[in-house]
Simulated scan of single mutants.
Amino acid sequence: MEAARHHPGPGRGYRPSPPSRDALVAWPDAFGTRFTVFVDTEEEFDWGKPLARENRATQAMRALPEMHRLFADHGVGPAYMVDHPIVTCPMSVDILNRLLEDGRSAIGSQLHPWVNPPFDEDVTPLNSFVGNLPRELEAAKLASLTSAIASAFGRRPVMMRTGRYGIGPNTLGLLAAEGYRVDTSMRSGYVYSHEGGPDFTAIGNHAFRTGKGDLVELPLTTIYTGALGRGGVRLYQALGRVPKARGVASRLGLMTKVALTPEDMPIAAALEAIRVAAGEGVRLLMFTYHSPSAAPGYTPYVRDAAELRAFRDWWEQAFRLLAQLGVAPASHDEILAALDRAS
């Protein structure tokens, strides 16, 4: 696999095609409109510096139980998408096993290739997207992570998210071959091609069957709000070609791109996005955050105690609105059961 060190990778500029109408998941009526939370459960590193294999510290995990209690108070059982530094840290595994005792939370996979063996590639921005690696190396990293999670938690993971949303042309087939049932690597409307990553402008918010075995894609929700919000990703792209146009459009209330996360996303924008998503018929709203944000000082989103309070308040306000709209939480296992009925 030594050739991987200089191989540009088959996934450079990978752009998934939009799903056909027949591929869209028809959620059972009884499922209603639901929301779920996926946590990128990962090691700590300096977000302003280059990635490094040595960054495997997991001290922020000590704060996760307190954050988990906030979710549990609202009946929310997150899916903790763990990567290799987490699953090989006994302290982190012990913490997560205690969180799983709520009966609603679950463990999934998150693959950060730069800290996930085998290490047969250079650590570069391009290689940080696992889908850019040669197929054999990507498969080996996935198998290594899946096996480690099964050993640590006594259950093979069936939901996956590639780190940095770094899906490539081989990823879905490899996931299906490993027995995964759900991928959450596609971030609706987002583009990472300037770094050699994927382009998700053709992917909407609706779950769809990938055509790789029984594998279903649950895209991370992105909503366009404002008077011109219905213009969606195409209008947003057009605005990007005019200097400062996106900022002006947002300040004027014409168009704002909103991801459902408290990380760098104001709560007022998120609340409006929740209303829009529910009104547009998005049946499963996908929320996310990074586990190190549970404690101050580990991510640029939660730098001190004041920002941690704001982070927690963001969730409280979001949960209140969701409850008012009748949008109930859906756990990992409830999503799987609904997909079984939908098939």
Rank of each mutant, 00 (worst) to 15 (best):
T58A: 06
I86T: 11
M67K: 03
R53I: 03
P78N: 05
M61F: 14
G48E: 15
M61R: 06
P65D: 00
H84Q: 10
P78T: 13
R56N: 06
I86Q: 09
L70E: 05
V87C: 13
W47G: 11
G77T: 08
H68F: 14
Q59D: 09
D73W: 06
I86R: 02
G48I: 05
P85A: 05
T58L: 02
R56W: 11
E66Y: 08
A79H: 04
A63N: 12
W47V: 00
E54L: 09
R56K: 07
P65F: 10
H68Q: 05
V82H: 01
H74F: 06
R56A: 05
M61E: 04
P65G: 05
A60F: 10
V76R: 06
L70W: 03
H84L: 04
V76L: 10
V87A: 04
P50W: 15
E54C: 13
F71I: 01
P78A: 03
H84E: 02
P50C: 11
Q59Y: 15
D83K: 01
V82S: 05
P85I: 09
A72H: 12
R69S: 09
K49S: 11
G77H: 05
G77R: 02
P50H: 12
P78S: 07
K49G: 04
H68D: 02
A63H: 15
A52K: 15
M67Q: 11
D83I: 00
A79E: 06
G75P: 08
W47F: 15
V76T: 03
P50F: 11
H68Y: 09
F71T: 04
M61S: 07
A57D: 15
G75I: 12
M67F: 15
P65T: 13
E54A: 15
A72Y: 08
G75N: 02
D83Q: 01
G77M: 01
A79G: 06
A72L: 11
P65V: 09
H84G: 00
H74A: 09
A72S: 13
T58Y: 04
V87D: 05
V76I: 12
Y80N: 03
H74N: 13
K49V: 08
N55Y: 09
T58M: 11
A63F: 06
H84A: 07
Q59S: 09
L64A: 04
L51W: 14
T58P: 07
V76S: 08
D73H: 08
L51S: 14
R62N: 12
L64K: 02
Y80R: 01
L64W: 12
R56E: 11
A60P: 07
R69N: 14
E66W: 06
Q59N: 12
E54P: 07
A57P: 09
I86A: 02
A79Y: 04
G75M: 05
H68T: 02
D83P: 03
R56H: 03
G77C: 05
D83E: 04
G77F: 03
A72C: 12
P78K: 03
G75Y: 07
R62P: 05
H68W: 07
M81G: 00
A60E: 14
W47P: 08
W47D: 08
A63V: 12
A72P: 06
A60L: 06
R56G: 04
H68V: 01
L64V: 14
R62E: 10
Q59F: 09
E66T: 13
A52Y: 05
R62I: 09
G77P: 05
R56S: 01
H74P: 03
L70K: 04
R53F: 10
G48V: 04
